[in-house]
Amino acid sequence: MPVQYYIFLSIALFCIGVMGVLIRRNAIIIFMCIELMLNAVNLLLVAFSKMWVDAGRTDAASAQLFVFFVMVVAAAEVTVGLAVIVMMYRNSHSVDINILNRLKN
């Protein structure tokens, strides 16, 4: 099975995530789209790890550890981000990101 299949699947998922960030205004949905993009990249890294294993490389486990660290960073990001969203909701009773425009002034 060509590794291109996985590359194209990851690109499709990543672009759907980008589209979601662009077309939605709900802060939580935008956050979920960022998670989607991170997962697309993770899938690509795992596919490349499998490709290196099949090519006979011994250090292919590094790619899987990168995925592990991406998950770690994503978990930390989600905690802080959701705390920010809850605080934003408490102050303005909305999760609309356009409200954050008032940070300008």
């Binding site: 099975m1 060509p2 590794v3 291109q4 996985y6 590359i7 596919a47 790890s49 499998k50 490709m51 294993v53 099949d54 090519a55 292919a60 486990a61 899987q64």
Partner: peptide, 16 residues
């Protein structure tokens, strides 16, 4: 048009 290796799905490795 990128040329890349193909995955051998029939062999299992213990890398993961």
């Amino acid at each position: 048009s990128a040329s890349m290796a193909s995955l051998d799905m029939n062999t299992a490795s213990d890398i993961g």
